[in-house]
Write a protein that binds this DNA or RNA. Structure first.
Length: 475
DNA sequence: TTTTGAGTTGTTCGA
DNA sequence: GTCGAACAACTCAAA
């Protein structure tokens, strides 16, 4: 063992790919020399789709570049984290490992394994408030969003002065071997990775006057409009911290000049709170990862129809809003929130397919794919979760299209074969008269699928299947 | 312990 | 076309 002259801490990077406002990095710096390490964990990598993996790899390159500017670098290793870290501790003589605490079932198990044999020091940072601190008076977890958010807001909130700037220099021991940085695919056009890009987005979204946050309350519902922050992939990998985002939201609310603007900032903040709510839910109810949170909805008789599922995956259901969502997912690995809800609701309700099939597909393909947020969102839409949508709240993809994509811009962008369909028919192309189809050169059923189900009957079938499960005494 | 008010994002039906 | 009620009761959270 070759001890370095100065005490050394390993900064174990997991999903906190940033130098600013990073408690795990600060904890390592407090020890002395900092050895930044990222472990390629086969267990996690095998579950992420190509696009998210590439985003992560590009993020590692950016982090490494930032570290090198500060006299440091990122050590890449591969394998079972406890084994790998034990090896690096021995090589470097590091006395401590710092890391941002993560709350998924796998992360908890992994970190317990590491902590059982190595000095692992976990810090907050993934959330503003640790999930086990936003609880009811009796200590039990909240299971309804609104009381959770009230309790969350009642805890001390950070201000701009709490943000820790990135270190100007980092002292890192030399001579520690690293694998080459993994190759990312060509830079993602929609979501360039990196802390710099994340901060630019946050700043422009909250920019006085021009920022999207001021119109967020209304524009966030329009999938054809760039009305959301587009920060989800960056929050997913901690290229920006939830705290940085929340502080920006609180400042925006303070600076708002109109009730609408203030409402926009609050609505956006509430989305950050939703993120923490779902992290808390999965932490408190780990079984939700694999089955319905609500015991009475664990026995819905899904149709188990693979072909229908595959049509949904491909974006060939015959319902333009659903198909636009699924094509957007395939094309850029990100889907507008309203379109996500629509596509998810359509799968679980109208197609009566097991929501977990859709959950897995989303988790694999989304750049921002996050176990807690994805599972929470799916269970909410499917009505199986805590604080779920009532059974009768079933999105109608036609009405939703007419309401939130009235001109069909979103549909035309992602379902190009419907490009020339006039607006009155854009959400119901099967109603185009034959002559009109000929004139436009599009044949429904050949160039674009006929609807997979009849909405009214499918809705009825879903309500019945759900109530049947609920009537069954739960085991 | 009991009571009370409330519950992200909707749709349909009938007046 | 617009509006309000119904949709099914239930559970949560706090007083």
């Amino acid at each position: 063992m070759q001890a370095s002259p100065k005490p050394t801490a390993i900064w174990w990077v997991r999903r906190d790919l940033r130098l600013a406002d990073n408690p795990a990095l600060e904890a390592a710096r407090a020890v002395g020399s900092v050895l930044p390490v990222f472990v390629l964990d086969p267990h996690l990598l095998s579950r992420a789709g190509r696009r998210r993996t590439s985003f992560l790899f590009a993020g590692l390159r950016h982090l490494d570049a930032s570290l090198r500017q500060r006299g440091s670098r990122l050590i890449i290793r591969e394998g079972e984290p406890a084994e790998v870290l034990a090896g690096i501790c021995a090589e470097s003589g590091a006395q401590t490992i710092t890391a941002e605490r993560d709350y998924t079932p796998y992360a908890l198990q992994r970190d317990a394994r590491v902590a059982s044999r190595l000095p692992l020091h976990l810090t907050p940072g993934l959330t503003l408030h640790p999930p086990d601190q936003v609880v009811r008076r009796d200590g039990r977890p909240f299971t309804v969003y609104t009381p959770f958010s009230r309790a969350w807001m009642a805890l001390p909130l950070p201000g701009p002065g709490d943000l820790v700037p990135p270190p100007a220099r980092l002292d890192t021991p030399s001579g520690i071997a690293s694998l080459p940085l993994p190759e990312a695919e060509a830079q993602d056009a929609e979501f360039p990775a990196g802390e710099g890009e994340a901060l630019r987005r946050l700043e422009s979204f909250c920019a006085p006057g021009s920022g999207g946050v001021w119109r967020y309350a209304s524009d966030r519902n329009l999938p054809a409009v760039e009305g959301t922050s587009l920060l989800s992939p960056y929050l997913r990998f901690g290229m920006v911290s939830a705290r940085q985002a929340a502080i920006a939201a609180l400042r925006a609310a303070d600076a708002a000049v109109s009730p609408e603007a203030r409402g926009g900032a609050h609505t956006w903040l509430s989305q950050l709170i939703w993120r923490e709510f779902f992290i808390s839910i999965l932490f408190a109810f780990p079984h939700a990862r694999r089955r319905a949170l609500r015991p009475d909805l664990q026995h819905v008789r899904w149709t188990d129809d693979r072909q229908t599922f595959e049509a949904w995956c491909r974006g060939e259901t015959g319902f333009p809003m659903v198909d636009a969502a699924m094509r957007q997912l395939g094309a850029i690995g990100w889907v507008h929130n309203r379109a996500r809800m629509l596509a998810a609701s359509f799968l679980a309700k109208h197609l009566l397919l097991d929501w977990r099939w859709g959950e897995r597909w989303f988790l694999q393909h989304l750049i921002d794919g996050d176990l807690a947020a994805n599972n929470g969102g799916w269970q909410w839409v499917a009505g199986t979760g805590t604080d779920a949508a009532p059974y009768f709240r079933i999105f109608n993809p036609i009405l939703q299209g007419q309401r939130y994509d009235p001109h069909g811009d979103y549909v035309r962008r992602w379902v190009p074969e419907l490009r020339d369909v006039p607006a009155p028919f854009i959400h119901t192309p099967w109603r185009l008269p034959e002559a009109e189809q000929r004139r436009l050169g599009i044949r429904i059923g050949r160039d674009y699928p006929s609807p997979l189900v009849e909405l009214g009957a499918a809705r009825q079938r879903a309500i019945e299947a759900y109530s049947l499960s609920r009537r069954r005494p739960s085991p």
